[in-house]
């Protein structure tokens, strides 16, 4: 059975036709938001993480209908005025992007952390990324990237270069 819900995806409110049993992940990928990756379907890997009303969630673990009327941010919505989000830039600069499959989900969890804690410790970052599995990096450069982004977002780009 299908129905139509309203989702605000990356700031654009739109009607979306969904099946009642469909996950938000399936709907977002079908709508072309390919940054939202499909890694496990059980909420364990975090590759499908998006922001739902500002909080990072695994989009495979929520029915699309449960997101009716709510705001979703994916990596596609992070670029402003042709500039990447500081965390995306930090991930690239730190060498934290290897295969890149987990990168979008990891970025969303990092942004969630930075929205709550502008000055995280290394342990804060590790805890925030606990739900985003990465098999390539050993997390070292991912953690560095989140810490670097925090510096940039706090003090402007110049502070982060030190």
């Amino acid at each position: 059975m299908s129905t139509t819900i309203t989702l605000t995806i990356n700031g654009i409110e739109q009607p979306v036709a969904v099946e009642l049993g469909e996950s938000l992940l399936e709907v977002l990928r079908r709508e072309g938001f390919t940054s939202v990756k499909h890694g496990c379907d059980t909420g364990d890997c975090g590759a499908c993480a998006v922001l739902l009303d500002g909080d990072a969630i695994d989009s495979c673990m929520i029915l699309a209908v449960a997101a009716d009327g709510r705001a979703i941010t994916t990596v596609e919505g992070l670029e402003t005025d042709g500039r990447l989000h500081p965390l995306q830039e930090a991930m690239i600069d730190a060498g934290a992007v290897q295969c890149g499959f987990c990168t979008p989900g990891t970025v969303m969890s990092g942004i969630d952390l930075l929205s709550r804690n502008a000055d995280p410790t290394e342990d804060d970052v590790k805890a925030a990324l606990a739900g985003n599995l990465c098999r390539c990096t050993g997390y070292v450069k991912q953690v560095d990237a989140v810490l670097a982004a925090a510096r940039v977002m706090k003090g402007g780009p110049d502070v982060g270069s030190g």
Partner: peptide, 10 residues
């Protein structure tokens, strides 16, 4: 990485 932008932007 030459592919980092495409990967980081999904």
């Amino acid at each position: 990485k030459v592919d980092a932008y495409a990967l980081a932007t999904g």
